[in-house]
Design a protein around this nucleic acid. Structure first.
Lengths: 342, 342
DNA sequence: ATGAAAGCGCTAACAA
DNA sequence: TTGTTAGCGCTTTCAT
């Protein structure tokens, strides 16, 4: 056989019509046992595999979904991606993946391209909050689930974590350690999660009757270092830092070490988002742990639920997943190992 | 408009035949300026987007490639994936992604599924060495580029790093520090990269006239801990460890810390594969750095090169990318920061 | 339970 | 330069 065998080839070999082969493969209608056996034999003999493009073109279903992440090299995002991919595989679906690089236009174009490829649904971590151009007009009837950051479009589902309350609880923890001047350090106020965590920080600070301090200079290691240097020159430098995400945590941690600040003695540190090796630094890092893979799993499940029900008009729902406080040493706790607070 | 506009709709609105629209879109043949303008207007008016499935079915090109990685949650793999995705986007291609979970059968099935989806090429980090079932028979004329781990099939391209010489140089470095008993710690001898790095270790050891010690117990933190405990009970415990990959490095590092071994005083440590935060541990970790993203970039470029040339008969070539030694503190070096040796 | 005909949206091949 | 015809491989519809 030169090129790939088609359904016609199978039908001919089995001595039946193509529709019988199609029905056998899809279980759309009953096929007598005998013919089924003949068809099955022919399929194996030719090593026949249906052409998914033709299937998608003729039928309604492409058995594929699209996944758009800001980046793939970030552990958090790729962890989510792994979960989505796993769920899709369980449903027999393929995943088209792409990155938006946090750019709403790229995101829009990539989404459009995926729709051209007839994906049945889209799972997205939207680019910077409020700027996403994804909407019903673009998507038509195709369902979309946003996660990590919600989309303000009522028809889309969202899956997020307890950003605000997680931050609030962690800052409360720092306050319990006796800190009065706690700095919030973020990468960018434009990102939804950073903003939400800032709100939690502000609430905790306000409830304790303290003053709030925030900075969004954690763009690069250098800018972070400069910012922290500025703090050290203050009359009363901060005694604790709360960082908005992994990268901010890393940058602040590095800067503090470089500047000879002893953690947690001179300044305590706690961050949002756990990561590998956070327990191997010195001191080990206290963080809010969010369930990255679980979030991807739930988002994907939600999408497949919609696809199964075929209900497209349903309003979107928001799922909020719980976070945990992982208390290690950088906050000032002195117990051995890590204490996880649900 | 109820459902999506088709080429026919555009043709009708522009008052031309569908072929003119097709030619306009693909630049296959010249279209007069006036008609081109009318077609362009119609396309924008209807917000028409060609159906990629139909294109792929009729024409030869699906403008998509498949990417198969062992896992997606591993930073190394997802970094490679990011690079592949970026290159594909530059070429206007979409990426179907999936994970093999290091299982050759899953890998085989996923590859077959991708071929059913008419991918034009495949980029793969093959599952455990020697067991991969990917071959020309499955792939037909579809090109494949293996990276990180090569595939022993002459028609496939491979992109790898200097696993053996990188390991050799690092072990030589440990030897220069005066170590006589250096343990090689790996996760699994079945993985190509681990095997290759072991060869480098063995060569360095042999050239120095030393005795070699190897263990593949770094499966879990627990098994690693047990293994190291065993070493400590030896008459002359090892004074240095060389680890085969990130996870092994982490496990050995944690175990040594837990057992109160002072690094590098009681035992030095050096590993293959750099990772974020390797410079923030205490002591900071000396590693062989391999260019993960670069490897993905080169593999993808190689694939697109083949696609462009359309030459399918060409024998596969192997590209070897250089690694760097990143000397931090865990090996016993005492300089500030990190020294990178090309 | 099975088959024949039509056509999904597009493009290669030919014709004008 | 442009249009017509045919058909990629499959499934829907209608017939038997």
């Amino acid at each position: 056989m030169h090129s790939k065998p088609t359904m016609k080839d199978v039908a001919r070999l089995a001595g039946v019509g193509t529709m019988t082969v199609s029905r056998f493969l899809n279980g759309t209608a009953s096929v007598s046992k005998e013919t089924a056996a003949r068809v099955d034999k022919a399929i194996h003999e030719l090593n026949y595999r249906p052409n998914e493009m033709a299937r998608a073109l003729r039928g309604r279903r492409s058995r594929s979904i699209g996944l758009i992440l800001p980046y793939l090299y970030d552990t958090f995002f790729s962890g989510c991606g792994h979960a989505v991919s796993t769920v899709a595989k369980q449903h027999g679906y393929s995943v088209l993946i792409t990155t938006s690089n946090e750019d709403p236009d790229t995101e829009f174009n990539e989404a459009a391209l995926m729709l051209q490829r007839s994906v049945e649904g889209l799972i997205v971590i939207p680019a910077n909050h409020g700027e996403t151009r994804l909407n019903r007009a673009l998507l038509g009837r195709v369902p979309l689930v946003a996660f990590d950051r919600p989309i303000c479009e009522p028809a889309f589902d969202s899956v997020v974590v307890q950003n605000e309350s997680g931050a609030l609880r962690m800052v409360e923890h720092l306050i319990k350690h006796g800190h009065k001047k706690i700095f919030f350090m973020g990468m960018s106020a434009k990102v939804y999660t950073v903003h939400a965590r800032l709100q939690g920080y502000l609430k905790a600070i306000a409830e304790a009757g303290l003053e709030s301090y925030e900075s969004f200079q954690c763009q690069t290691p250098e800018s972070t270092l400069q910012e922290i240097e500025k703090h050290l020159r203050m009359k009363t430098p901060p005694t604790a830092y709360f960082t908005s995400n992994t990268l901010a945590t890393r940058f602040v941690f590095t800067a503090l070490l470089q500047l000879g600040v002893r953690i947690p003695h001179d300044a305590a540190l706690a961050g949002f988002d756990d990561f590998e090796l956070a327990d191997l630094t010195s001191p080990s890092l206290t963080v809010v742990r969010q369930p990255a893979q679980e979030m991807g799993r739930v988002a994907a499940s939600q999408l497949f639920e919609r696809l199964k029900r075929g209900e497209t008009g349903q309003p979107g729902c928001r799922t909020v997943l719980p976070v945990e406080l992982v208390l290690r040493r950088s906050c000032g706790c002195e117990h051995e190992g890590a204490v996880v607070v649900q």
